[in-house]
Design a protein around this nucleic acid. Structure first.
Lengths: 109, 109
DNA sequence: TATATTTGCAACCATATAGTTGCGTATAAA
DNA sequence: TTTATACGCAACTATATGGTTGCAAATATA
């Protein structure tokens, strides 16, 4: 089970409020949205949106497909698992640490 | 319960392999580490490390204190909760969606 | 066919990032 | 007191980021 996406790119993609809003918009949308539709929800230009989409696509968070002259975007939450896995390592570490502290205290008692 | 740390800064702090390694080093360390001690583990200069530490300190992921001529760093995992909270929103969203799909199918059956 | 819409590409700008080096200063050790 | 260590500050470089505009091409509509 090799890592499909770069965790650097995933963290970077999420480290921007506009991109997180785009992500949110695509999550709650009932269907794929075109670049123009997404642009309509923001104060930045279409090219700005395009760049954000590109970055998120490279991170695996968004998938796109062309239909006619339009380009539709939809969200793919899979890469979020990389972040969850990264976090889980430390949760486990601190959990184990607490447990061994408990064992230590039990022995003393 | 207001958000103490900027989620932008937290994501940004973690979006760099060197910084994640510094974080890891400080997690597994049994005590606080000085800048020189941290620098010894990396291929970049002390000033480079200093800059990374600053960024992580601004994100709340590291706390520092001076002792004599040395500056000690230790990790603070609290800001990771901001990320967990952010992720949880979407977990809940998709969970609810699945549940209502289940309800829908139950009614049809 | 002529016009309007959606997009991509390229150039550009300002600022941030990731890194360096040099130097001065404070603290500790000889 | 002299020397060595740990650090901060400032300047500098190269590249990335977040944004813009203008223009051309493809597709849809009148």
């Amino acid at each position: 089970m090799s890592k499909k996406y770069s965790i650097d790119k995933i963290f970077k993609a999420l480290a921007d409020a506009n991109r997180r809003e785009i992500f949110h918009l695509l999550v709650v949308a009932t269907s794929a949205l075109s670049l123009t539709q997404i642009t309509a929800e923001f104060d930045i230009s279409r090219q700005g949106i395009t760049k954000h989409i590109k970055l998120m696509e490279d991170a695996g968070l968004i998938q796109t497909h062309n239909k006619g002259r339009e380009r539709f975007c939809e969200v793919d939450p899979t890469p979020l698992n990389e972040i969850k896995d990264w976090l889980a390592v430390y949760d486990k570490f601190w959990d184990d640490k607490l447990k061994s502290l408990g064992d230590f205290l039990d022995k003393k008692a």
